[in-house]
């Protein structure tokens, strides 16, 4: 299909209630003579304050999508609009929590300095900075660890530091790239509840990428299911679970099992190579 150039229809108009708008996104990694089509076509928008999860089979271009949204990667076609502004580099109002928690914290800084650094860059006055950092560390349960270096902490605690740094930055959109893929199951459950809790308290828009189906349904108000590469959107699933969630009760409900089963089935089909355009015409 011929992709039409997306028309830039006055982004400001939509800026009030849409935090993030992805329009006709395409990404092809090009080399001399060889190219890899990572994302074929993705369009979706995230309303302000929503917690959206993105799942897909491994190799679905989830990280590519995230890096495009975070402004770390140039898009091949289409555009990403954050707060009414087109993303061309890392946007101001966005904070990112990376999967590799150990590598995203500056090992030569203390926990406190790690959280404080972005605020120094933004020239936040010292007194306010100290207060915000202390609040952020307290919010993730690390009020006492400010003087420690990241590598002195466990993996789960390191990821808490990264989350505290993102929270202290006071972003309008918080992006999380498989943040809990490398921590143990118990820690993971705690961190999931921490994310829900922070999201409630701060009213921030969260985009949470994961390969874990349970996690996506448990956390999200909505789950975007991606196909395998070249990536398109398979289905936009609304999670109509009650807002109050807890690890035992929510996961035990019938509706959770249904949603989980549905997403699981979609992922299985995606892995088998099913694509929406299979119905429309021959795929490449």
């Amino acid at each position: 299909m011929a992709t039409t150039e997306p028309t830039t229809t006055a982004p400001e108009a939509a800026a009030t209630d849409v935090a993030l708008d992805v329009r006709g996104l395409q990404k092809t990694y090009g080399g001399q003579g060889r190219s890899v089509e990572a994302i074929r076509e993705l369009s979706f928008s995230v309303p302000r304050g929503q917690l959206t999860c993105i799942v897909g089979p491994s190799g679905a271009g989830k990280t590519t999508l995230l890096r495009c949204i975070a402004g770390l990667l140039d898009v091949t076609a289409g555009e990403i609009v954050l707060d009414g502004e087109r993303v061309t580099g890392p946007p101001r109002g966005m904070a990112v929590v990376f999967q590799e928690y150990g590598r995203s914290l500056f090992p030569w800084m203390t926990v406190q300095q790690n959280v404080e650094r972005p605020l120094i860059e933004r020239r936040v006055p010292k007194a306010e900075r100290r207060r915000v950092v202390a609040d952020a560390l307290a919010a993730v349960g690390l009020g006492d660890s400010g003087e420690a270096h990241p590598w002195q902490l466990s993996g789960g605690m390191q990821q808490r530091v990264a989350i505290a740094r993102a929270v202290a930055y006071e972003p309008t959109v918080l992006i999380m790239d498989e943040p809990f893929a490398a921590v143990d199951a118990q820690t993971r459950a705690d961190l999931e509840d921490l994310v829900r809790d922070l999201w409630h308290r701060l009213g921030v828009t969260v985009l949470f990428v994961t390969h874990d189906i349970d996690e996506s349904v448990y956390l999200g108000q909505r789950v975007l299911v991606l196909s395998n590469r070249p990536t398109v959107l398979l289905e936009d699933v609304t999670v109509d679970l009650p807002d109050e969630r807890d690890q035992l009760g929510t996961r035990g409900t019938h509706r959770f099992a249904e949603l989980r089963g549905h997403v699981y089935e979609l992922i299985q089909r995606a892995k088998a190579g099913h694509r929406p355009e299979d119905d429309a015409g021959p795929a490449s």
Binding site: G71, L72, V96, F98, I120, R122
Partner: peptide, 17 residues
């Protein structure tokens, strides 16, 4: 580390920083 480089870009560390 490239993840650190990305982190620095995302949090808008200034050139000097």
């Amino acid at each position: 580390d490239e993840v650190l480089v990305d982190t620095a870009r995302c949090y808008h560390l200034r050139r000097r920083s």
